[in-house]
Design a protein around this nucleic acid. Structure first.
Lengths: 331, 331
DNA sequence: AATAAACATGAAAGCGATTACATTACTGCC
DNA sequence: GGCAGTAATGTAATCGCTTTCATGTTTATT
């Protein structure tokens, strides 16, 4: 492996000049640049990233902390993040929080000790304050969550509006007895989606009885259970607004198992528009989340923070309803 | 940010000793170690990873090249890889091949220029020779593929056996007219799965007409199309062995749309046992792939190669059939 | 108690880049 | 042609750690 010195002496210049050619900021005479580039070529020179980082105090690495790497969006998320970062020659270091606060914090710690130039964080568990504190230590962008004090460093989805749209759609079809299955309400997105539901109901002058809201776990199984709970409560409902597709599918399967027809007896909307939303029969009507654009925005923003690049992108992303077959007028 | 020198002088030792305490390989007197650790604690010292890498010529980073980050297994894959690596204080650098050979090669190049200590590669496009050449340059483990010349550095699934089991299951139910929808046959796993199908058929003395094998694209849509093609060919079949779950689901939906009943009219087995395999009705019988164990093995093996750690793990992972509702005796 | 062996520590030379500062080489202007 | 001013390049210090080699300190051996 050749070094900058070898390149320099082959090109007949000093190492400093070679460095300047590489980094391109400082002007170098065209003739010199040519000679240096030839030398680099001939030697198959590759700058040593360790030395470079040590001297410049930049790692050219961006850390990504994800509360659960196997989550539904993470694939799409990462493809887009990585693509944007690579455009700028930055590497992506990933670390999973394995669904636990303590491990999430360890992850952050670990990435900081690696001296990443910036951090992308997708976390439900970390408090706003923890994130605000973190942002003072390192360029930070929060993914899929709005931290008000850090608004310009967040990339998130308009969950409330999405859920509002979904619920309104049910109402427009004539439903007035709509129950709601939410995600864990301590999570921001779950709470916002519930808020959207309530907003649409209120706007239509419809009551939302206590019993009509059930807090699930995002898991398919909790959708099944929620249906049973609703029936035990003797709650009359002709439609279900569900916080995500997995629970919606769970609910749907349970309804069908109980001999009910979707959408004839009960209508259903999900949220997330997962790839498999149309694998069920009938296809699940759901709210689409533009994960790809959110990811691109997040990485763009982080680059702007970490390397003073220009930036004019969105922070909040709109959702839209994708109609399939689970919604019909009430019986 | 404090440096090793500051720690050293606070502890009243030389920087060398501090280094030895950190790295733990060389014996240090208990008393000294204690003083050094106190000093590190008091200063909140964090070793500078750049300097460390530069001096030791080790990055403590492992690169992961994935042909397509959003693929079905990648979530599970990454959780497990990351977890194992973190145990050993190694970071995971990810890079996507974006489903193109050239970009895959760029990814590898990029990770090499970052001087990763080792590489995990999941690639269909790279040739065996390319991988063999790569393995001479850097510790390498190939994921989900067997390169014979690199057998001990591969972590893969027994696709043939899985497909054999699935097909045998159909045969045992009494089917003798079984068609097969495969993945793109230039991919090793697709070819192996087809081989398993043929093996089971041959073993049972059943013919496999040319027309009964259809090459798909792994995509759900190609499962739909395959069903149509089979019918255009006027091929009589009572069961379908499908190369993956997505195509199986596509086929199933098409069959149902054509008014056929699964499994009464046509039986169906998939492969991969994706989370959503039971979202369809009836639940898809499929072959389970132990992605988690394969990932753990891959990372363990790579650690052993890159850092001379001990290693005694498996290379080839067995699959097993998960029975749900898409298989029944022929009409 | 003397000697060898083992052990613990320190001194200092890198590792390979970046960059502030000094120096040299041009340019245009009078 | 000489001088100022700018542009291009070189010099050398620096980043913070690891590691070899040398030195000093114990511990065992007889």
């Amino acid at each position: 492996m050749s070094t900058i010195k070898e390149v320099a002496s082959l090109a007949g210049v000093s190492p400093a000049t070679v460095s300047r050619v590489m980094n391109g900021e400082v002007p170098v005479a065209e003739k010199t640049r040519q000679r240096v580039e030839d030398a680099m070529q001939r030697l198959g020179y590759r700058p040593n990233s360790f030395a470079r980082s040590l001297a410049s105090n930049r790692s050219d690495c961006i850390g990504l902390v994800i509360s659960h790497l196997a989550g539904p969006f993470m694939g799409t998320m990462m493809v887009n993040l990585e693509e944007r970062l690579r455009l700028n020659q930055k590497s992506l270091l990933v670390s999973s929080g394995h669904n636990e606060l303590s491990r999430e914090m360890e992850s952050i710690d670990f990435l900081m000790s690696r001296r990443c130039d910036g951090l992308l964080v997708q976390s439900d568990r970390l408090s706003d304050d923890a994130l605000i504190a973190l942002a003072t230590e390192i360029p930070l962008v929060v993914i899929n969550r709005l931290v008000p004090a850090l608004a310009s460093q967040c990339s998130y989805v308009d969950n409330q509006r999405g859920s509002y749209l979904a619920t309104r759609h049910l109402i427009q079809q004539g439903h007035c007895h709509i129950a709601c299955i939410t995600g864990p309400l301590w999570k921001q997105d779950a709470a916002q989606r519930l808020a959207g539901f309530r907003q649409a109901m209120a706007e239509a002058g419809l009551q939302v009885p206590e019993a009509a809201v059930i807090e699930g776990s995002w898991q398919e199984s909790s959708g099944r259970i929620a249906v049973d709970t609703l029936r035990q409560r003797n709650l009359h409902f002709t439609a279900l607004a569900v916080g995500n597709d997995d629970m919606a599918i769970g609910a749907m399967m349970r309804l069908q198992a109980l001999g009910l027809n979707v959408p004839r007896d009960v209508s259903l909307v999900g949220f997330d528009d997962e790839v498999y939303a149309h694998y069920v029969t009938p296809g699940l009507t759901s709210v689409h989340v533009p994960v790809d654009r959110m990811a691109q925005a997040a990485s763009g923003r982080l680059l702007s923070l970490a390397y003073d690049e220009p930036w004019e992108g969105e922070r909040c992303f709109a959702t839209h309803l994708v109609e399939r077959g689970t919604v019909a007028p009430p019986p």
